[in-house]
Amino acid sequence: MIRLYDYELSGNCYKLRLLMSFLGVEYESELVDFYPGNRHKSEAFRKINPLGQLPVIDDDGLVLRDAQAILVYLASKYDGSGKWYPRDNPDLLGQVSQWLAFADAITATASAARLHDALFYTHIDVGACRAGAHRLFRILDEHLFFAEEAGQDWICPGDHPTIADIACFPYIILSEEGGISRMDYPAIRRWCDRFKRIPGFTVMSGVFPAGPAADEDSKLAS
C-alpha cells in the first residue's frame, strides 16, 4: 500500500490526500511531527527526503518527494480515465504544467505567510509574501473569470478538473490563516465552491465543506 509521510495541517500533504480520495486509492499515513517536533528536519527523515520536506510517498519502494511531482505520478499511475493528468494531450499537458508551477509560487507566498502567522516562522518577510500572494490571486481570478465566460469550470480547459486544480486549491483556501483575504477574488471563490463539490472531496483542518449546491429549480429565473 502507498505510504504517505503526512502532517494534517500541511496543505502540500492535503493535495495528495485529495487526489487519492478523488481516485479512491488506498494509502496509509505515516504521521510526522512537523510541528513542534520538527521531525521532518531530523536525520532519520532526511534519509527519506534529503530536503527535509513533506510530503513524501513510498509506493512499493518508489520514494518520491514534492507535492506536484507526486500528483503527476499518482494521476499517471492510478487514474484510468486519464482526465486528472491528460498525458495524451500535449496542449493540455503544457497548461497543467504551467499551473503546477504557479501552485508552487502560491506555496512560496500564501503558505509562507500562514507559517509566519500560525507557526512562528518569524524570519519570513510576511508583507512581501502577502503582496506576492495577492499578485498571484489576481492573475488566477482573472483567468478563472474568463474561463467561466467561456463555459469552463476548471483552471485548464475541459469538462474535468486536473491536478492543476488540486495543486492550487489548498493554499488558496487556507490563505486567510496567513492574513490574505479572498474578498476581492470572486471567481476564485466560485471555483473553490465548485472544487469542494467534486465527488470524493475531503476536508482538512481549516477547510470546511461546501453547502449543498443550489438545484436548478431554485435558481432565479434569468
Partner: peptide
C-alpha cells in the same frame, strides 16, 4: 506522542478559522 499531539492539532486547526 506524535499521534496524540497531531490529534489535538487537528482539533485546534479546525477551530482556528
Amino acid at each position: 506522542d506524535t499521534a496524540i499531539r497531531l490529534f489535538q492539532q487537528t482539533i485546534f486547526g479546525q477551530d482556528k478559522p
